[in-house]
Design a protein around this nucleic acid. Structure first.
Lengths: 121, 121
DNA sequence: ATCGAATATAACTGTTAAGTTATTGTGTCA
DNA sequence: TGACACAATAACTTAACAGTTATATTCGAT
């Protein structure tokens, strides 16, 4: 007995190999978007540059928490920082985020509609 | 100073309110995509239905590990399962995944090109 | 029935990271 | 100068989760 699936399709027929490092980078990027508070901050920034204080007020999170998230987002290039006097203003640096979020939102909407169709028909 | 812990948001000026539950759901979805091994599995499934054994072989992960990831992905509706005899075949149930991944990949490509332009010009 | 292969699950471990409190640094204004 | 507001950081706690080992279950073949 040989392990059957070995002979059939090993791996050659795949689109692209996709290296482990690449997968790690992509996963990292998704991980940035996998936290509700970070999404909330990004959503706030969608309507334009905001100061840390504004973000604290609008999100309801603590100031250190917001600062930490902003730092994380900045380290990975999703937001940029502008200093003015005593204050720091943050804004979106990677607009692709909204494309991604919209795709996800649309997918959820679609699924919900399908489910309610199954129930309601 | 508002105490905003209880209610959603006290501020008016934003595009859409975006409830906390909504943010949680979106974050959850991104979290599913934030693990390299899960991305590897999904990438394998992009070329079509695969058995668990095939996925184990192609990914290099342990069998329990693959099974657990598949279970997670299925619970959240990203893959579906088909049983045939002793084996279980999994396939993509939510094609939006690839749209999302492509957007992310494109964004990384773009950034890299910009960086190499800055260096190489 | 029995053995082995395919898959799932349970229990455990280790790591990561979100949030907290406390503190530090820095600019502004009295 | 001192006092205060804004922001960042450090240290800590805790919870979530990826991966492992071990075990259970189910099917097919003998």
């Amino acid at each position: 007995m040989l392990k059957n699936s070995e002979s059939n399709n090993a791996e050659p027929s795949n689109a692209e190999p996709m290296s482990d490092e690449m997968l790690e980078l992509i996963a990292q990027r998704f991980r940035l978007l996998s936290d509700p508070m970070r999404l909330k901050i990004l959503h706030q920034l969608q309507s334009g540059e905001k100061s840390v204080t504004e973000l604290v007020e609008n999100t309801g999170a603590s100031q250190p928490n917001v600062s930490k998230h902003l730092s994380t987002l900045r380290t990975h290039g999703l937001v940029k920082r502008r200093q003015e006097g005593n204050m720091a203003f943050f804004s979106i640096a990677a607009p692709f985020i909204f494309d991604v979020c919209n795709t996800v939102c649309d997918s959820m909407k679609t699924e919900w509609e399908q489910r309610s169709n199954l129930l309601g028909s």
